[in-house]
Design a protein around this nucleic acid. Sequence first.
DNA 1: CTGGTACCGTAACAGTTGTTACGAGACGGA
DNA 2: TCCGTCTCGTAACAACTGTTACGGTACCAG
Lengths: 192, 192
Amino acid sequence: MPHEERLSKAVWDVLAEQGLERLTIRAVAAAAGCTTGLVMHRFPNRRALLRHARQLLHETTKARVETLEAAAASPRAALRAILHQGLALDPQTVAESTVWLGFLAAAVADEELTDLHRVNSRAWRTRVGRLVETCGPPQDPATVTVALIAMVEGAAAFAAADPSAYPPAVQEAMLDSALAAFGLSEDPGGRR
Amino acid sequence: MPHEERLSKAVWDVLAEQGLERLTIRAVAAAAGCTTGLVMHRFPNRRALLRHARQLLHETTKARVETLEAAAASPRAALRAILHQGLALDPQTVAESTVWLGFLAAAVADEELTDLHRVNSRAWRTRVGRLVETCGPPQDPATVTVALIAMVEGAAAFAAADPSAYPPAVQEAMLDSALAAFGLSEDPGGRR
DNA sequence: CTGGTACCGTAACAGTTGTTACGAGACGGA
DNA sequence: TCCGTCTCGTAACAACTGTTACGGTACCAG
């Protein structure tokens, strides 16, 4: 694993475990098992490090989503699968949601992080939108798309901040109920 | 306006305009038009200041929600009204959503902020849940409640980070479409 | 006018921050 | 073996952090 990737994953660890306020160069270096010298040799400054970590997070989830989409038996199965992976269902995805929230909060003060968020977020919206269109819901596909991605991201945020109040079963029931309500269930007929 | 309240609103301003990373005592004092002396005289430390600001945000939105709920003509109108106020539709609510995200990100490193978030968030969920039950949706009320609050919070987050991609019309269409899909539209019949 | 008290601005403290500079050491070709 | 280069740990820098201590000043009872 190249050092840039290792450092970016260290950024995720610190962001997930210690939060944005303690996301310092030294904390990242400690999490990566090196010193600040290596970090500053690989990245010109702290913001560049954050941007690389943000982009790597996007590419990781993108690869996972593409795998799920390719393996799905039908468009509706693919839609459910990629929305399902966006929920916070286990320690891994809980951490991812926390990290995503951290980057979003950090973007307030960093215009380049904001741009990165918008590009990635719009790509995600477009991907889900294409799938929703293929599934052919009764309502406007664009509106349904916004409803679905907002719901998943919101549920992941709530679950990351209060896991016991949003256990996996609750999140999954929410997703399936919404898909059924929008006429996008896997079993034909629209009701579940 | 008492000084505690003025300082807490200054915390919001800094959080909305400069982000969590620049949320320092000095920045808050500057936003409030005073010095660090006054801040530290009113609050024992920085975390107590953040907690007060977090709680005041909750109480402000709670008061607004109660007003809307009392003024609504029907349970369904009340449900739509209080979900609608949670969206990020104008600079005021966009800032509120940004501040809410900032507190959520800050809660990762602050257990007391986490507790505050959970208490407030569960109260919000309970309030919406009661209203959903009263409206009597076809599906399980608890599941519909989670879907609605997650969707609104997620939409507010997306809109705060990328306002032009989530204009008010899009957010409102999303909300109305979801209420219709769950059989909770204001006009009887369930479809819109 | 006098004394005291509560408020809060000023200035300092030690610790931490991002960033820079320097040097040791590993590695590889000649 | 020797020398250059590339990597990265060490240590330092100024700026900034939360917090504390001190001093002045406004206010008010007597």
